[in-house]
Amino acid sequence: MLDFVQQLVSGIALGCVYGLIALGFVLVYKATEVVNFAQGDLMMLGGFFAFTFIGMLGLNYWVGFAGAVICMALFGMLAERIVVRPILGYPQFSIIMATIGLGYFLRSVAGMIWGTDDFKIDTPFSQGVLRIGSLVLAYDKLSVIAATIILCALLYLFFNRTTLGTAMRASSENMLAAYYMGIPVKRVVSIVWAISAAVATCAGVLLAPITFIHSNVGLVLGLKAFPAAVLGGFGSIPGAVVGGVLIGVIESMAGFYLPQGWKDVAPYIVLLAVLLLKPEGLFGLHVRKKV
């Protein structure tokens, strides 16, 4: 039983990271119908920025964290301006390929700049553990869970309660109509990319104590975040996080109870099952086809 709870908590913590990456997918998808295959790599880059600020320049953890988030938000805008904006409105496949290309580029360049070693960021939560009876929970895992809940709530409020959030949802439904209604669609898209890069950075920094940061971490985790986003229904913010947590728990349980090898495959088997049985996901909307 104790093992089960331990596995559950570490699964949830890992799942929250998946959920945060999936949240990035969902944000960009909701606002622009673009699926950003480079989301994991944005996370990796954010982690490296934080590592540079905190580990190499020796800044305070929170200052470094904020610096990384701001830098990555600007970087997200830049990436959107250069790679995505010129092909907005073209078939999805082109945009998917462009973001795959962006991911490739970021991975390689990060490998060139920071090398291919593993890096670790010292956080205020790295050390301590929370003891409840004989249950031992590490603070770093709990911090991921807490941060995910806060971020998710903020984003949910942002999308549903603010003018800008409404504008984002409108431009995702129909860009042209949104433009006619006076929404500056280009700027909205730019801001969405900034937010999604910032969320990815949070994921990267929170992840750093759990798994180390290296140049391929984005690919590995980014691809695990897809099952999360699909499970939750692409386009639903709470769905992404719930999907992420479910995938994390499934992976963690599969690693503990099933023979070796199932751990890596389990998320994808779940994904295929979801796509077969309920393609719109747990929280997705079922939309009828129109001609």
Binding site: V83, P86, I100, Y104, S108
Partner: peptide, 19 residues
């Protein structure tokens, strides 16, 4: 001879062709 130059070139090629 930098490590990963091939990946960077792939990335640039994809983006340039798509754009």
């Amino acid at each position: 001879s930098a490590n990963g130059l091939k990946g960077a070139i792939y990335g640039v090629i994809i983006v340039v062709f798509v754009l």
